[in-house]
């Protein structure tokens, strides 16, 4: 890993460092009541996010194509959407614990990306040389980022079912209901999950003459969609506890992680068109 780190671009190192600093800030913030310790990590996380944006933009220019092709590129983009969603959620719901959790997640994604680093930039095959590639990937990664953050708030709910005291929140409210936060983020993620599925079907039809090829990744995309659809319906069962709802979201996030990373382990993956190259 040190060898990989040695050869990465300066911008990658800077981004990683900033995310690490944000994480340190959040860790301190968990134990400190001052408003200062709520703002500093948030500011650091925002700067790290901007550095990550520059990293992606630079890659886009260097490669001369959207940087969503290789596993490494997709991991960096996943870190980017997760940071974006986390920053928005922290701002909107005034909870710094969300930033704390996501900065752990993002730092881990970045370290993982380091081990999957592309030494060479791969050119796009004909199927990926289309504008449809961009909205499909962006939809999915926004959804994944949002649902990942929803998974974190679901964990927060399980840990702190009664909500949290005000000193961990940045706003005026005295308690934060993580179950409701989870629902609102999940809803957003689900919308983009649906849009990503639609855009994928449309693109698949143009590229491979097939809107649905029963490809394992497509099937798992459907499975994750069904789990989150089930979550939305579980909410209509009055006696279904909020604790169980949180677990449904966590299972959904696990399914996303499997969809994203686990395809190589499936016997049906041999024919898949979605398995990442490189790494």
């Amino acid at each position: 890993m040190l060898e990989s780190l040695y050869y990465t671009s300066t911008l990658f190192k800077v981004t990683l460092l900033l995310y690490a600093l944000a994480l340190v800030g959040y860790i301190i913030g968990v134990f400190r009541k001052e408003k200062f310790w709520g703002n500093i990590p948030y500011a650091l996380f925002t700067i790290a996010f901007l550095a990550c944006t520059a990293l992606i933009a630079g890659r886009w220019i260097e490669a001369g194509r959207p940087p969503f092709k290789s596993f490494y590129e997709s991991l960096v983009f996943a870190a980017w959407t997760t940071s974006l969603i986390s920053l928005v959620v922290e701002y909107r719901f005034k909870v710094r614990l969300v930033g704390f959790m996501s900065s752990i997640g993002v730092a881990m994604i970045f370290l993982f990306a380091l081990t999957k680093r592309d030494v060479e930039i791969i050119a796009l095959p004909p199927a990926l040389q289309t504008w449809m590639f961009i909205p499909h990937v962006i939809s999915y990664f926004l959804a994944y980022g949002a649902l990942f953050v929803a998974g974190l708030t679901a964990i927060l709910y399980l840990v702190l079912p009664g909500g949290i005291a005000s000193h961990h929140s940045l706003g005026q409210q005295s308690r934060i209901d993580f179950s409701s936060t989870t629902y609102q983020i999940t809803r957003f993620g689900f919308l983009f999950l649906t849009a990503g599925l639609l855009l994928g079907a449309w693109w698949g039809q143009n590229a491979w003459s097939n809107y649905w090829g029963w490809d394992p990744k497509e099937n798992w995309a459907l499975i994750t969609w069904l789990i989150f659809a089930a979550y939305l319906h579980f909410r209509n069962i009055p006696s279904w506890s909020e604790k169980r709802l949180a677990w449904v979201v966590i299972i959904g996030v696990a399914a996303i992680v499997f969809t994203y990373l686990g395809m190589d382990y499936l016997p049906t993956a041999e024919d898949s068109l979605h398995v990442y190259s490189g790494g």
Binding site: W214, P216, N219, W220, L222, I223, L226, I227, A229, A230, H233, F234, N236, I237, L266, P267, T268
Partner: peptide, 24 residues
């Protein structure tokens, strides 16, 4: 009912998963 909705959605999910775990 939401019972039926959730259960049938999850059944489809499980069925689809079986189709990826076992060679088709």
């Amino acid at each position: 009912t939401p019972y039926f909705a959730t259960l049938s959605l999850l059944c489809i999910a499980v069925g689809t998963a079986v189709g990826t775990f076992i060679s088709q």
